[in-house]
Design a protein around this nucleic acid. Structure first.
Lengths: 250, 250
DNA sequence: CGCTTTTATTGACCTAGATCATGGTCAGAA
DNA sequence: TTCTGACCATGATCTAGGTCAATAAAAGCG
């Protein structure tokens, strides 16, 4: 079984992971990051039977939209997604970007309907976990329940961090924080922490951070002048992690 | 058993609810809003045995602080609390206000330590739910597990809403949204949706909404001139719910 | 109760970042 | 290969809301 923590693949693009569409959890390279961690073998087999793996999405295609009935939670398998909520007048806030092993749709459990929209940023695949069935098999798998709670809690904590970012940080700090968050997540997936590919547009980044596109563009340029990063289109290298860490202020 | 949904107590101050410190879940006036909803009677009794009800907190006293080991989740019983996260340089963001029946500490599950600080806004009491024991009895109570997931999911959804507020709304919209959120929560607890008491300071409100205190003060004054509200110190009346609803843009 | 500290209000001024405007670049379609 | 539309960069200008300052009103407290 691949232990991604210890390897750095040559490709930087998460969409390029060639997943056998039907590889079971215990053979999946995301095993260490995903839900099944800590489950015993026969529990894993049972979990495998309810997971749907058929789904594949193109850039801009949506996984679900607001007000659609909540049926499943999704785990990103390859590629990436963004989730968005909308105000009545059409203004939108991107509430998160999601990479392989991360869960989408957890905020929909409580009222049986999605409140946000999830959209692929590139060609992507997901594992679909039908929630009712999860609860059913969860009755005999306390470890699975704990995993779910842990996941929810983790997203909650990261959202609180985002509230600090949106409410209190300057534009520079916002962008630095964002880049380091990506860096850490890529690193945890076995990719380079310093060279990576931005699958989202400048305007998605701006929206997510509560900034204007122009500001993000200017900041990328300035960070480059200041030797903090090197950026060319969607390819970015973080040149000075220490300064970036200081800048983001945590 | 009190069905708070149908009554409007004369007092407006949540701290003034006179709770018998030791009343069991099935006799608690918060029953319909709280965790036990949907549990069978003997499950409820079992839950009761692990809940600690001794705790009482004064204004400014903290329930827990960041980096303290995570042991329990807390449910507000009377009064109110705020939670805060801090950046390295001391800047703080108030991530939420919590009223009777609401859960505090859910974001700490995933890494066994609190990441934020929780502090009483007035004399308050809580029920303490030791997490390990909850998980233990949860093994035989699927309904309890679902309740927990639902709670987490609900907070997640409301945090996404807060991200929209912080990232995209104007100062007016922020304040209107905040007032309506309080209104709905008080109403759900059997209190007036239009007359209530603000247990938090202007600067807490400002901090939470990503504004300066002065801006909040000015907005309160202007909203009053425009006949949207009447405010005097910490007592507020919402005079024009329709306009406030429109203003908040959802 | 008066004294001190904290909290709230209001005005004058300023700035970070938004908005507007223009031109450049790149990818896909014909 | 040119065309088209989305995306990106950068300069000029503007403004919502922050900061600073002074005062007033509450809230603790000996």
């Amino acid at each position: 079984m691949a232990q991604l923590d210890n390897v750095t693949p040559l490709f930087k693009d998460l969409a390029k992971i060639e997943h056998d569409q039907n590889v079971a959890c215990h053979d999946c390279s995301l095993y260490r990051l995903c839900l099944p961690l800590g489950l015993h073998n026969n529990d894993l087999v049972k979990l495998d039977t309810i997971i749907k793996r058929s789904n594949s999405y193109q850039r801009n295609q949506s996984l679900f939209t607001a007000d659609k009935n909540f049926i499943s939670i999704y785990v990103v398998r390859s590629g990436s997604f963004k989730t968005t909520i909308a105000a009545s007048d059409g203004r939108e806030q991107i509430t998160g970007f999601y990479f392989p092993g991360e869960f989408i749709g957890l905020d929909a459990i409580h009222q049986k309907a999605y409140e946000s929209t999830a959209e692929a940023l590139e060609s992507s695949t997901v594992c679909e976990l039908p929630f009712e069935q999860m609860q059913e098999i969860g009755k005999e798998m306390p470890q699975l329940q704990i995993q779910m709670l842990t996941r929810l809690s983790k997203e909650l904590a990261s959202d609180k961090g985002l509230m600090l970012l949106l409410g209190k940080k300057t534009a520079d700090e916002k962008l630095a924080s964002f880049l380091l968050s990506l860096s850490k997540r890529f690193h945890a997936r076995g990719f380079s922490a310093v060279d990576f590919h931005l699958s989202m547009s400048r305007s998605d980044i701006a929206n997510h951070l509560g900034l204007a596109v122009e500001t993000v563009s200017r900041l990328f340029s300035r960070f480059q002048e200041e030797q903090l990063i090197r950026i060319s289109g969607k390819e970015i290298s973080l040149l000075d992690m220490e300064k970036l860490e200081v800048l983001c202020g945590e």
